[in-house]
């Protein structure tokens, strides 16, 4: 009984003394933190995706408070959140256009000739073995290196093809560097019409390996009339994102290979892999 009492008292006294020491040390060596940094961090999404170019949200928050970055530099934060941060810091929020990733390929398993491959299931490794399993040298390999790199689950691998869901994409650009074929570009979220092909080969060569390649027939260029909605680059047509075409252009141009697609229909699987 006595021993137990001594132990409890001794431990209690020791605890109290150490507590006081810790308290003094904490006061004496306190690190000055701008509480605004914490305030900004609270208002950020906290995904730590690195899309802003800083080492996570805390680092970005610090940069914003120190004026090295704009609140709009966070690609993930919704406009309301950006406005909130700007209001909190008493600075003006910059208007920024939302950009989303686009995989410039429509060659799923039904569309491209595939060779047998049973090596590492990773695009960057697969590309080392005869350039990958897709018939097209420029096509999506479909092993999902981009999907792995996406912290927001915005990329789906569907039938051997990476498809970006624009509503989930926040524009952090992590996927852009992950693709060994450099297929992913950032486009304005408002643009609806895209060319889902990135092969610079001649039309006939592309058609041999892929049913839905852009063969640069220029039907879409003609359909846009005077407007320069579509730009021809060698044997490939590209959407002019400076002057994006209206959704009606897809219908009007009747793309013979269905490489010209509406993003919403492509994501929903509306093209079914078949070309006309």
């Amino acid at each position: 009984m006595n021993i137990a009492l001594i132990a409890i008292v001794a431990a209690g006294v020791l605890g109290a003394v150490l507590g006081i020491i810790i308290g003094i040390v904490a006061k004496a060596f306190a690190v000055e933190v701008d509480e605004r940094v914490e305030g900004v961090e609270e208002r950020l999404p906290g995904a730590n995706c690195g899309g802003c170019g800083f080492a996570g949200c805390a680092d970005f928050a610090k940069a914003v408070v120190e004026g090295r970055a704009q609140p709009g530099g966070c690609p993930v934060a919704a406009p309301e959140a950006v406005a909130d941060i700007a209001g909190y810091l008493g600075i003006a929020a910059e208007e920024k256009e939302k950009r989303v990733a686009l995989v410039r390929c429509s060659g799923d398993c039904a569309n491209t000739v595939r060779s047998l491959y049973n090596g590492v299931r990773d695009c960057r490794s697969a590309v080392l073995v005869a350039g990958g399993a897709k018939g097209c040298d420029y096509g999506c390999l479909g092993f999902g290196s981009c999907a792995d790199a996406c912290p927001f689950g915005a990329i789906e691998i569907r039938d051997g093809l990476a498809v970006v869901h624009p509503e989930l994409c926040v524009g952090c650009e992590n996927c852009v560097a992950a693709c060994p074929k450099n297929l992913i570009i950032m486009v304005p979220a408002t643009a609806e019409v895209h060319v889902y092909c990135n092969s610079p080969e001649k039309g006939a060569a592309k058609r041999k390996v892929c049913k839905t390649a852009c063969i640069a027939c220029r039907k879409c260029v003609k359909a846009s009339g005077e407007e320069d909605h579509m730009l021809v680059d060698g044997f490939l047509v590209k959407t002019n994102y400076e002057n994006p075409p209206p959704p009606e252009l897809v219908e009007a141009s009747a793309c013979p290979t269905s490489a010209l697609r509406l993003a919403s229909k492509h994501v929903a699987g509306g093209y079914g892999g078949a070309s006309k």
Binding site: G119, V120, D122, R124, S125, L128, V129
Partner: peptide, 9 residues
């Protein structure tokens, strides 16, 4: 295991 492929990568 595809060891060699891993090393090339």
């Amino acid at each position: 295991r595809p060891l060699n492929q891993h090393f090339k990568r």
